[in-house]
């Protein structure tokens, strides 16, 4: 048995929790309400350590095959 970080796995992109100001910026940029964002479960293995609650927005920086690097947002759901 050993301890390992799932964040290091090649399939797992970087997850960052946003603060209130950043959330507002994102929603203004896309001109949407928070309900329209894709969701992520609060029990999701990756964000367990980020100490999230319902309504938080997670910024995800993916490695994309087509664009190099893309940014994606998910809101923490129920």
């Amino acid at each position: 048995m050993k301890s390992y970080k799932i964040e290091d796995h090649i399939l797992v992109p970087k997850h960052i929790k946003l603060n209130e100001d950043e959330i507002k910026k994102v929603l203004d940029f896309y001109n949407i309400s928070i309900k329209q964002l894709p969701r992520i479960s609060p029990k999701d293995a990756v964000i367990k350590n980020l100490n999230v609650k319902q309504g938080d927005v997670i910024k995800i920086i993916r490695n994309s095959d087509t664009a190099g690097e893309t940014v994606f947002y998910r809101v923490v759901g129920k």
Partner: peptide, 10 residues
């Protein structure tokens, strides 16, 4: 379940 939804997408 082990690596999260983003890993599943990939």
């Amino acid at each position: 379940s082990v690596l999260g939804i983003e890993a599943a997408r990939q």
